[in-house]
Design a protein around this nucleic acid. Structure first.
Lengths: 132, 132
DNA sequence: CGTAGTCGATTACATATGTAAACGCTTTCT
DNA sequence: AGAAAGCGTTTACATATGTAATCGACTACG
């Protein structure tokens, strides 16, 4: 049923930036996460530490002791998070139907030619599989 | 560039419920909006009034005096809102690429057979138009 | 051995959001 | 006329979120 029980509490936008860093490379120390996200966001190390704590509290990130400090790793898969968030949007805005989302993206000119080609391929695969 | 200048401030989830009511039928009085949304959400009329005020402050809803009370109408188009939100998600989670979103929805089993058929049709139309 | 640096944990504080009660004005019964 | 009801506005308050400063423990250098 692909439920979201794994993703108990919502991950906020700021927290998401930290998750992305950890999904890119893990495990990382708080300082290393900061190296990856503080610069573009204008954050201080303290902010990253807070976000990491909150993520650990939400069981979205796991921490393992490494001598004095901690090493942080994602505790949820990126694909699960992205799938869950995508589904949330589709449910919230389009009553669970993906086709209207697609139509609105098209209208918002958010679809590149590459997107179209790739989606076409995905579609073909899905329809073949669906008929399985 | 299809910018979101029309949608200055973000519309929250609770506010969105009110917008949906107004997009469905407008203009409506506060009480009528409540009739449409209070029941399923377990809200009181006071809550709807607050949300309407905030939406008016955000220029997402327009109010016109009607004798004693006000009539409320959407000041932004539903399509613009949906397109904007969709684009936000795609930008935030997928770096602006729609294809991965589509892939994740597929993986999250959020695509119905109907969706696939409709998207296929949309795709065909878009690719034809794109080649124009 | 003490002191400075480094960590995570705790606390802080502003703004956003959800949810509503209180207030003040006007209209409408009685 | 006075009370009740209906409206929008103002105020309220809890939780969530963004963004940090501070604290207490420990380590490493001098």
């Amino acid at each position: 049923m692909a439920d979201e029980s794994l993703i108990g509490e919502r991950i906020t936008e700021a927290e998401h930036a930290v998750m992305e860093a950890l999904w890119t490379r893990a495990p990382l120390t708080a300082a290393e996460v900061c190296d990856a996200v503080c610069e573009p966001r204008g954050w201080g190390l303290a902010t990253v530490k807070t976000l990491l704590s909150r993520l650990v509290a939400k069981d979205a990130v796991a921490s393992q002791p490494d001598g004095k400090r901690f090493l942080y790793s994602p505790a949820i898969a990126r694909a699960d998070y992205l799938g869950g968030e995508s589904k949330r949007l589709v449910d919230r805005l389009f009553g669970g139907r993906a086709a209207p989302l697609f139509a609105h993206l098209a209208e918002a000119e958010a679809l590149t030619a590459t997107d179209l080609t790739e989606i076409e391929a995905l579609l073909k695969a899905l329809m073949a599989e669906g008929g399985r």
